[in-house]
Write a protein that binds this DNA or RNA. Structure first.
Lengths: 338, 338
DNA sequence: GCGCGGTGTTGCAACGTTGTAGGGTCAGCC
DNA sequence: GGCTGACCCTACAACGTTGCAACACCGCGC
């Protein structure tokens, strides 16, 4: 129904190929011809057919971004940055929400996609290392988040364990002695939670503090409500903590809400640290101390990695690269006070 | 490079079309043949080529979602809901960030897209009515946000003006008499701001309160920082307001931050209302009273409308539909106290 | 006057898929 | 025995595009 090269060619009285040449900016086209063709293009409102172009051997100009859930602010911010970075390469971004379900993550990686994409940026939640190995060789993939196995894909991440340690060391440095953790997860597939927990334990022992398993609260998901409930459980103890390290900012904001509800002063009675540095924490009351992973940079690197992969000859592809991104502590009112 | 029907056919010793039939679940294929073909498919790791399928006349299975910015929580939540709703129709969602720039919004609508999409859901920020009329007839479009002109596209929205009025009436009902507004915008293209301002003015006069232009603060964008700055300006007045209606939740959260910074009690001295009901407001301190637009429902309706359009014969397309979605007031601590 | 390189244009094939039309085989029925 | 219809499979064309090879024409230099 929409006009094709054929229709434009007929109207301009030239061959299909000449129209194609005009469209693609081929130099050796007589000015008069070019003008006539252009006129026909405008008159008919011709637009190149993306599917045909792609079939002919080109790229689709689309990359997929697979993440657990856009509704979580960290992933929304990440997605925004990815889209921005992709624009610089003239790419458009397709969103795939996995909801952290193993099955859907597996499908993604094993290439059961319905759509043609040039590459995939994947922020796995549940997928264990081995599954990722089954990735199809066809489309390049960049993984976000902690690398746990050395497979065929590129990878961009901060050092989760070290970052968690930094957060706990900060709390200990403030003189806190009973530092709780919110965000542990039961499933062994919850890599992020495990790494942050490992950092927490390492830092505790480094600071000469005892590890008390009862101060570690597990959650179903990383939402505000989970943080609020976990904090409530901690406050119900006979010996509540004097600091809490939450494995992401949402948990921390939920925890703070519970603390304030119960009249517990933050940070005077309980200091709170988060992780991710989402925008909410910069304006909440109190503002939230947190680990800032430089998400914009992660996004840019991921997209650039993908671009490099697409530029290179698949035959002589370089070995998978692993990029560590620096993190920083953003210290605000929830640990320092006003 | 990746295997095609041809390769599978060769390996299974059948025709290309038979393989195609197996892939598409055509019934009249001998069990033996089917098994052999399936074996070849598995062995070669065959995946249908999306571009070729689409070229052949099918749909792409992709819809585009154009919105100003994923980093703004309301749009992130909206995008998440859209993706979820699209899944039910087996669609994947392509994200286009416009940053509210007129030029980019115009490009989108005029069909300068590089990619083949089945439909477009568009949340315009800056685009005036007339521009939208130039939409290409080819791909159906659903607009989100207030309709200001009656063009060829479907449309889903809440009644912005009425909703803003409800918010202001609530504040007036609490006995507030100097109700400020944060979020006015200079450009005439900022339709949302204009409508909420109109609702504000209408409700004021309805409640017998004078309209004081100096209580209306304009902002550059709808972010927390803008709300914080605007609130600061209001507090610097000789006669600060006793309530503030912010045109979205981010402005409100920024305003609250300023209030607390300056030791102003919320809501005792100044009550604050927002608009959008983003998740942050449900856990902030104080929790935020706001207008809740039922974003999930908006998303579902938008996608369903698109689905209907795609199902119908373009020749006998129904007239553009306009769906009003109900809004509700979520009254929380920022106006009611604890 | 002939060959040569640059210019402007064209036809053909191919990308991978599916709809249509048709060919062949076989069982069942008059 | 021949006809019908169901079943299984295949050949061909077409979707819209672009790379390649080729062609015709031109002016230039020898």
């Amino acid at each position: 129904m929409p006009p094709g090269l054929k229709d434009v060619a007929a109207r301009a009285g030239v061959s299909i190929k000449t129209v194609s040449n005009v469209v693609n900016g081929y130099v050796h086209v007589a000015p008069g011809t070019r003008a006539r063709v252009q006129e026909a293009i405008d008159a008919l409102g011709y637009r190149p057919n993306a599917a045909a172009r792609q079939l002919r051997g080109g790229r689709s100009g689309v990359i997929a971004l697979a993440l657990p859930e856009l509704q979580m602010p960290y992933f929304a911010e990440l997605a925004g940055f990815i889209v921005q970075a992709a624009e610089r390469h003239a790419w458009t971004v397709l969103i795939d929400q996995t909801d952290g379900q193993v099955e859907r993550e597996r499908n993604l990686v094993s290439g059961l996609r319905r759509h043609a994409i040039d590459g995939l940026i994947f922020s796995p939640l549940a997928l264990a290392g081995g599954d990722l190995a089954r990735g199809e060789a066809g489309t390049p993939m960049v993984l976000l988040g902690e690398r746990v196995w050395h497979g065929p894909a590129d990878h961009v991440a901060i050092d989760n364990t070290a970052a968690a340690g930094d957060a706990v060391r900060h709390l200990a440095g403030l003189g806190r002695r009973r530092i709780a953790a919110i965000g542990a997860q039961a499933q062994s597939s919850a890599i992020t939670a495990h790494q942050r927990l490992a950092g927490y334990r390492a830092a505790l022992s480094e600071c000469g503090l005892p590890y008390d398993a009862s101060l570690v609260v597990a959650v179903d998901s990383f939402r505000r409500a989970d943080g609020a409930a976990a904090m409530a459980a901690l406050l119900d103890r006979a010996d509540p903590p004097d600091a809490v390290f939450c494995f992401n900012d949402l948990l921390a904001l939920g925890a703070i809400r519970t603390l304030l509800d119960r009249g517990v002063a933050v940070p005077d009675e309980v200091a709170v640290m988060g992780f991710d540095d989402i925008e909410d924490g910069r304006f909440s009351s109190p503002t939230l101390s947190t680990v800032s992973p430089d998400t914009a940079r992660i996004a840019r690197l991921a997209v650039d990695l993908l671009a490099e992969r697409l530029g290179e000859d698949p035959a002589e592809a370089a070995a998978p690269r692993e990029l560590k991104v620096k993190h920083t502590l953003m210290l605000r009112e929830s640990t320092l006070g006003r």
